[in-house]
Design a protein around this nucleic acid. Structure first.
Length: 598
RNA sequence: GGGCGCGUGGUGCAGCGGUCAGCACACCGGCCUGUCAAGCCGGAGGUCGCGGGUUCGAACCCCGUCGCGCCCGCCA
């Protein structure tokens, strides 16, 4: 290889050395008598100086260089004069005086300029993803992701975990998310499914005596996309035998702490050991099961306050068993009517009927949409409950409990943003525990598994399976940070009688259980050890580490919100012969047929 | 499936019923020996996403449609 150094690695220590660099022309500045070319490679950017006195030939070639041309440059590293140091570049103290340059490949003018500050639209970036990925920020993200995965592998290896690959073509078990299906040519009319996660397989590995397993596992879910959801994504999947909740939590907390210190040392973990919140407490205090604990602004129950007022709207909600809760926004009494209307528009979008507000004026006087109802005792109770002080704004929402929590939880994040309380350099991890095992499915009139059907109930709640399923708590835990759910897992059921009872409650008949999970149930009859595990949403973890607003920024080739890969054009139609081999016929709805031709 | 926003030279935006559709950057040519978002001079480049409608007249208003983003539903 002719390259001797990476462009971005050159430092004063290299001064005087003759180096050969390889990379892309980032930018060039032609001054007529001297030409500066910023040469970019994976490691960074260095300034190359073309001077006719150094090499007439190289100078002539440099005159023709354009952005993104690929070149070899040979020259001597020299210290820059002090007044010409560029503090914006890591290599800014040196420059390379070019003695020879070879053009390896010319580039067409790229559709957008390759640099971090550029405001190219995401659509264009995704179409030319290979150019987008040349941007230093994107390379930083991919490198961060690499270092994260590498650290995890080494860390788990050192603690006796084996990395085991599980199949991508598996059996469809239509619980939970919609499966991606793959037709079988050898078994006409039958289909594989792509794994939503290696859940069942890792449990079977525990039955197999593997004891400690992990995998950086690609997972697939055919559901609509979001900023934090792609149809294919990556989990750090983990399972351990002979463990309880504390064991899994302990290993993962230690891994996360070490990982943060290794790959994002500039970030401060707010609290170690990670605080733990019950699911109920999280919803109660933060209106979310993945609260952002970097700031307070906790939800306050104001039912008892409004109960003693004449405000019919809130009293009616309370009479129907609903809630009235509020958030104290410190200092926001300065908000104009327009700004509050803006917030009201948001909460309506989230499903609230309206937003009530009260400002505490400097004199202690209350002002606002519902202030006139807060007299005497109610006024005192309001101030006592909210702890509101002059200059504060209290925002309130009334309605059904879950809705109030959800709306105020979102409003809390909005206020956190507006008040600048979400410091990106702080990681506020927390474990959310004591999840309900089931949640009531209104539409189907039955219980659904909140986590998945193999999640173990808490030992002390076993009796309630018969009497009060809604009160049964699960041996389940989520790891959250800064408002994101980063991981979730549970201890699994290993007792046949308990599993049977759970299937009963989930309205899964023995026949259906046999059909769907027969292999699991049978396996559990051959000496299944107690076991449990967890899965990290690796894309989200890296996204948070990288301070990116969505996981597309930490995935090399992501898909758009409609599941399209703009670079390759996937998904696409296929040859009729391919379909015929698979015994598949495409039947489009009538209206789509009419417009399907481009 | 539903709601909201956006779509205008290569890129990012302005224009939101009436001269020839502007600006910045990029691009092309010229000048220039210390720039690093180089500078100066000159130039080229647009059927305003697509289709239909309203109007004397549409980038602009209306309807439909496509694409992208955000949100709801969905995501055990």
């Amino acid at each position: 290889m002719r390259r001797t150094h990476m462009a971005g690695e050159l430092r004063p220590a290299h001064a005087g050395q003759r180096v050969t660099l390889a990379g892309w022309v980032h930018r060039s500045r032609d001054h007529g008598g001297v030409i500066f070319v910023d040469l970019r490679d994976r490691a960074g950017i260095v300034q190359v100086v073309f001077h006719p006195q150094t090499s007439e030939e190289a100078f002539r070639i440099a005159e023709t260089l354009r952005a993104e041309d690929v070149v070899y440059v040979t020259g001597t590293v020299q210290m820059r004069p002090p007044e010409m140091v560029n503090p914006k570049l890591a290599t800014g103290e040196v420059e390379v005086f070019a003695e020879a340059v070879e053009v390896l490949n010319r580039s067409r003018t790229p559709p957008f300029v390759i640099r971090d500050e550029v405001a190219a639209g995401e659509e264009l970036r995704l179409k030319y993803r290979y150019l987008d990925l040349r941007r230093p920020r994107m390379q930083r993200n991919l490198h961060l992701r690499h270092r994260t995965v590498k650290f995890i592998r080494d860390w788990l290896d050192a603690r006796g975990f084996w990395e085991i690959e599980t199949p991508i073509l598996i059996k469809s078990t239509p619980e939970g998310a919609r499966d991606f299906l793959v037709p079988s040519r050898l078994q006409p009319g039958k289909f594989y499914a792509l794994p939503q996660s290696p859940q069942q397989l890792k449990q079977l590995l525990m039955v197999a005596g593997i004891d400690r397993y992990f995998q950086i596992a690609r997972c697939f879910r055919d559901e609509d996309l979001r900023g934090d959801r792609q149809p294919e994504f990556t989990q750090l999947d983990m399972e351990m035998a002979f463990v309880d909740e504390e064991d899994v939590i302990g290993v993962n907390e230690a891994l996360m702490v070490d990982l943060v210190r290794a790959v994002v040392p500039h970030k401060r973990i707010q609290q170690v050991p990670f605080p733990r919140l019950s699911y109920a407490e999280a919803l109660e205090r933060y209106g979310s099961d993945k609260p952002d604990l970097r700031f307070g602004l906790e939800l306050v129950d104001l039912g008892h306050v409004w109960h003693q007022t004449d405000f019919r709207v809130f009293r009616a909600v309370l009479a129907e068993g609903g809630q009235v809760k509020g958030i104290r926004a410190p200092g926001l009494a300065r908000y104009s009517r327009k700004q509050i209307d803006e917030l009201e528009k948001l909460v309506r979008q989230w499903g609230a009927h309206g937003l009530a507000w009260v400002k505490v004026q400097e004199g202690g006087e209350l002002q606002g949409s519902v202030a006139r109802f807060l007299a005497d005792g109610a006024r005192a109770a309001f101030l006592e409950a909210t702890q509101a002080e002059p200059g504060d704004l209290v925002l309130m929402v009334a309605g059904e409990g879950a809705l109030v929590a959800d709306v105020l939880g979102r409003l809390r994040l909005e206020l956190g943003d507006r008040l600048g309380l979400r410091d990106p350099d702080v990681l506020a991890f927390a474990w959310i525990v004591d999840f309900p095992l089931f949640e009531w499915n209104e539409d189907e009139g039955r219980w659904d598994a909140m986590h998945h059907p193999f999640t173990s109930p808490k030992d002390e709640d076993l009796e309630r399976l018969e009497t009060d399923p809604g009160q049964v708590r699960a041996k389940a835990y989520d790891l959250v940070a800064n408002g994101w759910e980063l991981a979730g897992g549970s201890i699994r059921i290993h007792r046949r009688d308990v599993q049977q009872k759970v299937f009963e409650l989930l309205n899964i008949s023995p026949e259906r259980a046999q059909e769907r999970f027969g292999h699991m149930l049978e396996a559990f009859e051959y000496g299944a050890p107690p076991h449990g595990g967890i899965a990290w949403g690796l894309d989200r973890v890296v996204m948070v580490f990288a301070d990116e607003p969505n996981i597309r920024e930490v995935i090399a080739f992501p898909k758009t919100a409609s599941g399209v890969d703009l670079m390759t054009g996937a998904p696409s139609e296929v040859d009729p012969e391919q379909l015929a081999e698979l015994y598949i016929r495409v039947v489009l709805p009538e209206e789509e047929k009419a417009t399907s031709e481009p």
